[in-house]
Amino acid sequence: MTITARAVAKHDLKLICEHRERMFAESGRTREALRPMTVAFERWLSPLLDDGSYFGWMLEDAGVVIAGLGMMVIDWPPHPSHPADHRRAYILNVFVEPEHRRRGLARRLMALAEERARELGVGYALLHSTRQGRPLYESLGWGPTSEMAIRWE
């Protein structure tokens, strides 16, 4: 098995959306409840793939995608964690097909993301982790933040 990495492309739009929905479904949400999010996410993501502000990598085995990761550099006010920079790397949509898990693929994708952030001169990154992904991120040195949230309806 030779696994190759390639850049995310416009033709990956539906697959990225599928990975995202499956990721949230594996965290305990129903696919039916996630459908509106997926539809809205596809509309949101399409122009970002076009202009390159959403980028990332797909890992393939014999031309079949088995894992993916998305990344953005987002504008954020200078902060104690990045006092001289107004940017953060944001990693999202990390997904590995179930039959390919526990083989270091997510770790490989995270290394690609770190390498790209360093090339761009972005020294601070964040992500939102599922319970399943937390041990991997912690093993790579990621830690929790003090972020809080509320939903206003």
Results as ranks from 00 to 15, higher is better:
I3Y: 05
I91Q: 00
P78T: 08
I91M: 14
G63E: 09
P77Y: 02
K14A: 14
L126D: 14
G143N: 13
W142F: 10
R102L: 10
R101C: 06
L49F: 07
Y124I: 09
H79G: 00
R108E: 08
R107S: 13
V96G: 01
R107N: 12
R107C: 10
Y137G: 05
E97T: 05
E97C: 07
R108Q: 13
V64T: 15
G104H: 07
I3S: 03
A111I: 00
T4N: 06
R22F: 13
A106D: 03
H11D: 13
G133K: 04
T130S: 15
E97S: 06
E32C: 03
S53K: 09
G121Q: 09
L105K: 01
R22Q: 15
D50T: 14
E21K: 15
H82G: 12
M148T: 14
E42Q: 15
E32V: 14
K14N: 13
N93V: 01
V94A: 06
V96R: 02
W57N: 00
I91V: 09
L126A: 15
L13G: 06
G70F: 01
G56D: 02
W142S: 02
D61V: 07
Y124L: 09
E97F: 08
R29C: 10
M37N: 12
R6N: 14
P98A: 11
A125V: 07
A33H: 14
A84Y: 12
Y124P: 00
R43A: 15
D50G: 13
H128Q: 06
V39W: 04
A149R: 13
L120H: 00
R101I: 05
E114K: 06
I16Y: 00
L13D: 08
G28W: 11
S146Q: 15
G141M: 05
L109A: 02
G104F: 08
H79C: 04
F95G: 06
F95R: 09
P144Q: 11
L34K: 09
S129I: 04
G52Y: 09
S146L: 07
F95C: 01
L92Q: 06
